[in-house]
Design a protein around this nucleic acid. Sequence first.
DNA 1: GGCATGAAAATGTGATCACAAATTAGCAAT
DNA 2: ATTGCTAATTTGTGATCACATTTTCATGCC
Lengths: 227, 227
Amino acid sequence: MEIAPVELDGAGITRQEWVYLQLKEAVLTGQFVPGRSVTLRGIAQMLGTSPTPVREALRRLVAERALESHGNRRVSVPRMTPAKLSDLCAVRANLEAFAAERAMPLIDDAHLDRLWELDAKVDTAIEAGEIRTYLQRHRAFHFTLYDVGDASAIMPLIESVWLQFSPFLRLAIHHIGSEYIVDRHVEALRAIAARDAQALRFAIEADVREGLGSLTEADWRNLEAAG
Amino acid sequence: MEIAPVELDGAGITRQEWVYLQLKEAVLTGQFVPGRSVTLRGIAQMLGTSPTPVREALRRLVAERALESHGNRRVSVPRMTPAKLSDLCAVRANLEAFAAERAMPLIDDAHLDRLWELDAKVDTAIEAGEIRTYLQRHRAFHFTLYDVGDASAIMPLIESVWLQFSPFLRLAIHHIGSEYIVDRHVEALRAIAARDAQALRFAIEADVREGLGSLTEADWRNLEAAG
DNA sequence: GGCATGAAAATGTGATCACAAATTAGCAAT
DNA sequence: ATTGCTAATTTGTGATCACATTTTCATGCC
């Protein structure tokens, strides 16, 4: 279970919601190792609640494909397979290229400035080798790009996909080394500034493909051995 | 709450799963009217269980956007707005065109035959004016088209979108009349037979656009008055 | 020593209860 | 008749308990 996020209970939200947010953040920053099984009472004790809110939070995360529930009992962090990763990449590229294209006309100068700042922070985290911070900022960049106007129909879908590959991404970066992290953020932002939809789509698709889809067979073997 | 699906408890699955399946089917066939609030004890009594499994099933459906949870308490069937419908249509068209294109190479003759049969059954239901049966078969056709090979990454996303517009679709068909139902299924199947990816994409996009996106302002007013 | 068998511990599920928040109903005042 | 307030009811939340299933582990057998 690695590092338990210990933070004070927030006011105004239910305990179940709080548990859900804690677990989601843990999944997105790769605190949960793929294959690890997640127990009700374990999480409950870790977060200092009864099993009840945990049960509902887990059910929610399973529904969002962040966790999987095999047989009919045990809940665990899904393992990645080459086929699954390939599928996920294709879906992600399609979904995010679509979202970016849809967002572009709604992005004003202030929004664009904010994206430049976020990208700079991403680079800072990479240079410092802080993987967890990098994952958070990387996500902030992409989500800020897509979530403009009322994108309420597509954002949850994108979030679901991120929940699925994040634990694996964390593992992959850890084993391959953060110095090999590359992105196409600058290219994407320039495309937005130029209002070039096709270039934007190309940048996003390349960003996804190079970020996740470029793992070699050797990389997979290393990950298998470690996982 | 309309018609309560009364069926015997299935063996091998948990009560929560059974409740979830019942409610999902009810949503997909438009048994739940948009705006109607859903109560825990109400559903529990209707289905003959304690509130516990219902609570988890509802949490799952909220996570899949089939239901929405406003404030911090009440759960209800989401109302549709023109903006939301437009968004949903665009996402659906993109997602399903992508899924169809991806499925095409994997569709063999047996699969294609099955799709022709399903489409024929769709037409039968339309002619008979049986809306609920139509909705089930319409869904079966689309899902059978996309769910070939291992489409586990994209199918849940498509299902989530369907859960969101289904209650509204039911309302719309009811008010506009089933005689105006049109689809592009034949066009899609011919495109698959000809292995023409572009034609398939066009057919799917048209099917979505004409099926949901073609409501006039007058139609909206009628729906508002009724809902 | 490896493997099957059984007991013991752990785990998910569903029901029930207490409680707080919210909704509704009833009633009084203007 | 409408509005405002208060009480009663309803509802969601979280904890606890009992139970069935699963997993773990120790013991005995080949």
